[in-house]
Structures are given as structure tokens and as C-alpha cells.
């Protein structure tokens, strides 16, 4: 199955994992401590995140550390920013229209 960055953020647990590893690289065990779910569940989310290419793994001794692929996350920003601009430009027109309507009411 083809995965992309939006599947990465479609789940609340995955969003929380992203927020955690954005600060520092973490092992699956360390991550699991932050959640009520099982270690297996966290591993599954990490697997999906890896397939979405938003995390990278680094072996340090016996442990695997997960960290965030910042560039990949930026794709979300860029995509949403386009969308936001279109709406915002419309809404700016609407602001002006509403100002006019308010003046008429007075």
C-alpha cells in the first residue's frame, strides 16, 4: 500500500508520536511510556510512520532511535498553505463586504 505524509498525521497517537520525536530522537520503549497503549501498538504506528517516510531510524548500540524527517513534514505545510491562501483571499473580500453591510445597517 502506498503511504504518504497525510496518513502519518491522520491518527491522534501518530500525531503525538511526531510531537515527541520532533524534540529528540527516542526509542520505541521510551515512546511507549508516554501512551496508555501497548508497546506493540506504538511499534505499529512507528512502522506506519516509517512507511510514510516521516521518521528515520538510527541504530545506537542495541537500541533503535526514531527521529523526525523534518523536510517531509514540510510537505504538509506547503500543501495546506496553498489551500489556506485561497480561502483567506476570499475571506478578505468577505470582511470588506461585511464592513459595508454593517455601515448600511446603521
Amino acid at each position: 500500500m502506498r503511504r504518504d505524509v497525510f496518513q502519518a498525521i491522520a491518527d491522534p497517537t501518530r500525531r503525538a508520536i511526531i510531537a515527541l520525536i520532533a524534540m529528540q530522537a527516542m526509542t520505541p520503549n521510551a515512546l511507549a511510556e508516554h501512551f496508555d497503549t501497548s508497546r506493540q501498538a506504538v511499534s505499529k504506528h512507528l512502522r506506519i510512520l516509517t512507511e510514510c517516510e516521516v521518521v528515520k531510524q538510527e541504530q545506537k548500540g542495541r537500541e533503535i532511535y526514531y527521529s523526525l524527517e523534518i523536510a517531509k513534514m514540510k510537505e504538509i505545510d506547503e500543501w495546506l498553505e496553498q489551500y489556506r491562501k485561497i480561502w483567506e483571499s476570499r475571506f478578505e473580500q468577505l470582511d470588506m463586504l461585511l464592513t459595508e453591510l454593517k455601515q448600511k445597517e446603521k
Binding site: I9, A10, L80, E88, D95, L98
Partner: peptide, 24 residues
């Protein structure tokens, strides 16, 4: 400015406030 988010895989949410009463 408008706030845009993706609450799920299939959705986009756009939030914005306007300085006017709801009837307008």
C-alpha cells in the same frame, strides 16, 4: 487569517472569524 487543518484523511477544516453579527 484563516486556519486550515486536516482532522482526518478525508477532511479539511477551515476556520475563520468575522467582525460582524451572525445575521450579516
Amino acid at each position: 487569517p484563516a486556519k486550515v487543518s486536516t482532522p482526518s484523511d478525508q477532511e479539511v477544516l477551515i476556520e475563520r472569524s468575522f467582525d460582524a453579527a451572525v445575521d450579516l
